[in-house]
Design a protein around this nucleic acid. Sequence first.
DNA 1: CGACATTTTGAGTCAGCTCAATCAGTGTGG
DNA 2: CCACACTGATTGAGCTGACTCAAAATGTCG
Lengths: 240, 240
Amino acid sequence: MQQPFVPLVRKLEQLQALTAAQREVLQKLPVTVRELAPGDHVVHEGDKPKLVCMVVAGVTYRYTIVGSGKRQIMAFYIPGDIPDLSSLFIEQMDHSVAALVPSTIAAIPHGAMRRLFEQDPLLGEMFWRETLIDAAIIRRWLASVGRRTASACLAHIICEFVTRMRAAGLSDGVTCDFPMTQTDLGDAAGLSTVHVNRTLRDLRDRGLVTWGPRSVTIHDWAGLAALGEFDPSYLQLPRR
Amino acid sequence: MQQPFVPLVRKLEQLQALTAAQREVLQKLPVTVRELAPGDHVVHEGDKPKLVCMVVAGVTYRYTIVGSGKRQIMAFYIPGDIPDLSSLFIEQMDHSVAALVPSTIAAIPHGAMRRLFEQDPLLGEMFWRETLIDAAIIRRWLASVGRRTASACLAHIICEFVTRMRAAGLSDGVTCDFPMTQTDLGDAAGLSTVHVNRTLRDLRDRGLVTWGPRSVTIHDWAGLAALGEFDPSYLQLPRR
DNA sequence: CGACATTTTGAGTCAGCTCAATCAGTGTGG
DNA sequence: CCACACTGATTGAGCTGACTCAAAATGTCG
């Protein structure tokens, strides 16, 4: 099976190359690999995890349920991401993380992560930076949900996901696995499933994207990015 | 004038007492104190700051402007908060921070912060934790804006602000300075000013809150919290 | 093939929007 | 002390983007 740290190392190295020692320290972290079926939870709201979970393969998402029973998805996580890194410093989960598709995750004990940061504070700062990028993504979503139209919001979500998948080496930037259902997209964008359906049809009718089985193809990147006001700089990816 | 670090030390000590050494190291950080008028900027989107700015007095807010010219406010910051701590690890600002009312901020050079974290990694982790709480707040806003009604969203914002002000020793939990205009609240909640006005009137008519000049009084905390589905645990305040 | 999940469409409704005034509070200059 | 300017709160009226309910069509998978 794939070395679990490959996606993470790849991501961290986008900022700056790791030393051989750093790479080795990472790869020696004690991990427990786990396979998840769609809908299986990584953590539940209210849990007090003693591990952090890194996505190795698949897609997971962060969500919460509000009083009326509605769900708000707050992020999608792809290989290399650590959705619950915050549990290292915030004891109790204030949201849940679950798998969207069959996924592989690697659990690392909190203690091992803490020792890693003591041993190599620069690695600690790199992880801190990752949590800041995660926050920047959420702020973009907030701006989209609060102040953009349904079509702009969905266009932004599509552009962002494909860009991140591309950076992870999982898309060529044109066609991309896209496993979210229309219900998922609605819960991410604060829209009803019906309205997502009509809005996506509109994107298709405008010649921006087409849909395959659990995948998208972007036919007019400039048009889609303009519609979604998507500027990837907040993702802190290397210009390519 | 007030020691600039008093609000920050107070906030950090809510988790655990600082050692005398830690308190001293903090208070020896080189700061430049600056007074801001309402609307003055701490940083602009696109800037590459070389300082971080701590709120000493007043209120600042984080916002971005979307393509249509609409503004989305993404956080309010009160004394003790460091709105742009992320600039330490993310070079370019992807949003702006400005003063809502006459405010005092203290600027600390990035280099001094970095040395602080080297010198005392535990302090570094405390600051990391603060950025994670900031992210948790944004996620709550996302859930509110995406999936709650206008009245619930505004009730949540009010409860959260008063709770944080209380924790900072700036409110008794009943009456609180509340300097946001209805336009500001709309830009925070993703609503129009007109609708904010009607929704706030509704909260008043239900006997939940009354409004003074730049202040609120909460008459029925349980009712307001229930309406806004407000559970303060995500703020990581000590139970009192 | 059957059961279930997902997408699609139609039709009617409504929360929240825009436009347009009006009213109230505050500060400023004369 | 008053007129004026300006900001912010309030109200009315009509509109619309997005919602809900309901059902049909299309996958998908054991």
